[in-house]
């Protein structure tokens, strides 16, 4: 029995390792190519590692402005999503009215709608409202598209905060919004951070929405500029592409690391979703 256990554990490890290697290979390419002046398409460690590729892309047009645009766009949208989601989650979590159930069902229903499909009419709407190529309009649309899922998750996390503490505050005459700010939010900040970080990571990687709604090169975020810089003119410089990919990916990697060290990582999200 014990020998069999050991065997099955060994087999599990080997299978897992094999799958892990398949996931790692493409990632290794970007690491090695970024320090290779003559990078090609296969995974190979450069004979003369160099930081030249990074130096080549670290300038205003290629890196600094798109990354800053991305931070403004995704940071703004993620914050807007979070504020609206927290405000909306409070009455949904705390009070039971006839309105709650239909609203929550609608929210859940919206999480299933393909945002890609909405983009054509959204573009039409933006033309009519004169919002095409404005950061403000794009921020509001990105926030809205993340909102249904964020409301759902925030409410789930908020349900975990016991209501008894607020009841004491209500007795002391505190209003709803004060109870939310002073009692509920401090108790559920890990949940808030999880939702906020995942919303931001999702937006940071989103290509289609800013690709459709923003036009001027000086407003494009990193997710689109990487495509316009490297995707459109034939054979790109792979080393620089890899270096740029790494720079562009770093913010979300750092955020993810923060999440996994402090908050139980993505597994917290899995727990909230699995229903």
């Amino acid at each position: 029995m014990i020998a069999r256990d050991k065997m099955s554990k060994l087999a599990s490890n080997l299978v897992l390792l094999a799958i892990g290697v398949l996931f790692v290979l493409p990632l290794l390419w970007v690491l090695f190519a970024s320090i290779n002046r003559t990078a090609g398409l296969r995974v190979e460690f450069p004979t003369h590692p160099t930081l030249g590729n990074f130096k080549a892309v670290l300038n205003t047009d290629t890196t600094y402005r798109p990354v800053l645009n991305g931070i403004i766009l995704c940071g703004g949208a993620a914050l807007l999503t979070m504020i609206c989601a927290v405000l909306a989650a409070y009455p949904l979590s705390r009070f039971r009215t006839r309105f709650n159930r239909p609203f929550l069902l609608t929210v859940l229903f919206c999480t299933g709608l393909p945002i890609t499909a909405v983009m054509v009419p959204v573009y039409g709407l933006f033309v009519q409202l004169n919002l095409v190529d404005t950061l403000g309009g794009t921020i509001m649309f990105m926030a809205t598209s993340a909102l249904p899922f964020a409301i759902w998750l925030t409410k789930t996390f908020m349900d975990g905060v016991p209501i008894s503490l607020e009841e004491a505050a209500w007795v002391d005459g505190a209003g709803n919004m004060r109870a939310l700010r002073a009692i509920v939010l401090p108790l559920m900040w890990p949940g808030i951070a999880v939702v906020l970080i995942f919303t931001f990571i999702g937006m940071w990687g989103n290509f289609f929405v800013p690709f459709m709604l923003l036009l001027s090169p000086e407003r494009l975020p990193a997710s689109v500029s990487i495509f316009t810089f490297f995707g459109q003119y034939g054979e790109p410089n792979y080393g620089q592409l890899a270096a740029y990919s790494l720079i562009y990916t770093t913010p979300v990697l750092l955020l993810y690391l923060l999440l996994s060290r402090k908050l139980g990582g993505a597994f917290a999200l899995g727990g909230a979703i699995k229903g």
Binding site: F23, L27, I201, G205, F207, T249
Partner: peptide
């Protein structure tokens, strides 16, 4: 490795 692939931006 698996989560790393997931966190990467779409275009990357």
């Amino acid at each position: 490795a698996v989560i790393g692939a997931w966190v990467l931006p779409e275009v990357v």
